[in-house]
């Protein structure tokens, strides 16, 4: 027994500690992302945003959380009870498990697996089930419409996201996230990947169901879509899941295109600052784009969304895979 404790127990205890740290960090970030969203949108719309709870309204997310906790979870009578409750849990859990492979700094990663990027892609592609299950189990027209929209939207944009990831992999020569960050990336390669960065940025908006692609929610047409029947804690889980997903997608973008924890523009003097700070700042930059897009752009129409995904992004990314691999071959720069 002692043997088992020594071989597994200590390791397990440490792992749980790390998991607690990461989950805690993500949840706090989510809370303040909602605050940041309201502040940023307030500033863009010449309002003040939350101001009353705490200094500068800093305690507002906590107040919101408490409010949701204390409310009653209503389960519609005609709903499929188990699936109805499972859906938000699944979505929330998936938005957390993905963090296992994210490197916050050199060596700061819970599970340094060989196929980290595939793992992230797999987890994000499963997120759609939370939405579909919620929409179906609610037994409501609006919710069902939202689920259908979400299913087709996420599947469509995953295709081009996969191809973009292939482009990055070709340049890095590894599926391991740390190696992707550390792979040398000369200026021409960055220029080559820049279009993919833009497409990826747009695709993650669609993948996380955020404006201008928030058709699954579409509060003005289908009154909240798949979330229409949810209340209190169940709703809070969706909410947390959505924002955690946003942060996760920003982190992935940071790792794939912005050099992860490395100091910006390769300025060595900046390496004195801990990598996790750069990682956080870069992620925050992408998150700002999320909020910016929400405050500025009107929602896409459904056919326009599909058209963009299948007729623009898919051919373009497919072409770009060929361009990238061709360039790498021609320059003899294949890793």
């Amino acid at each position: 027994m002692m043997d088992l404790w020594q071989s597994y127990g200590i390791w397990t205890a440490w792992t749980f500690l790390y998991i607690g740290l990461i989950v805690g960090g993500v949840l706090i970030s989510v809370a303040y992302l909602t605050y940041a969203e309201r502040k940023v949108m307030g500033a863009m719309q010449r309002r003040q945003g939350p101001m009353t709870v705490g200094p500068f309204g800093l305690l507002q997310p906590i107040a919101d959380g408490l409010k949701l906790f204390s409310k009653e979870t209503i389960i519609p009578t005609q709903s499929s009870r188990v699936v109805f409750l499972l859906a938000p849990m699944l979505l929330f859990a998936l938005s957390l498990v993905a963090w296992a492979v994210i490197p916050f700094d050199k060596g700061w990663v819970l599970a340094n697996i060989n196929v980290g990027i595939l793992y992230l892609f797999a987890v994000s592609s499963m997120g759609v089930y939370g939405v579909i299950m919620a929409g179906w189990a609610s037994n409501s027209r609006y919710a069902f419409l939202g689920a259908l929209r979400s299913a087709s939207q996420m599947v469509s944009y995953e295709v081009s996201m996969g191809l973009i990831i292939v482009c990055v992999l070709l340049c890095a020569g590894s599926l391991n996230l740390q190696e992707i960050v550390l792979a040398p990336r000369p200026l021409w390669m960055q220029a080559l990947l820049f279009p993919m960065f833009v497409v990826f940025l747009i695709s993650i908006l669609a993948e996380t169901n955020r404006a201008p692609f928030d058709l699954p929610e579409g509060e003005s047409e289908i009154t909240g879509g798949f979330m229409v029947e949810y209340s209190a804690m169940a709703f809070a889980l969706f909410f947390l899941g959505e924002y955690a997903n946003m942060i996760l997608m920003s982190a992935i973008t940071t790792i794939l295109f912005l050099g992860g924890w490395l100091p910006p523009f390769g300025i060595l003097a900046l390496a004195a600052v801990p990598g996790i700070v750069w990682f956080g700042l870069k992620t925050a930059l992408i998150l700002f784009v999320f909020l910016w897009a929400r405050a500025t752009l009107p929602r896409f129409r459904y056919d326009q969304l599909m058209r963009l995904g299948w007729k623009v992004f898919l051919p373009f990314t497919l072409l770009w895979v060929i361009v990238v691999s061709g360039t790498l071959l021609a320059l003899g720069a294949l890793p």
Binding site: A122, I132, G162
Partner: peptide, 14 residues
């Protein structure tokens, strides 16, 4: 997971 769970089964469910 990516192909069957993430794509094929979604369409199935659909």
């Amino acid at each position: 997971v990516i192909v069957y769970v993430g794509a094929v089964a979604v369409l199935f469910l659909f």
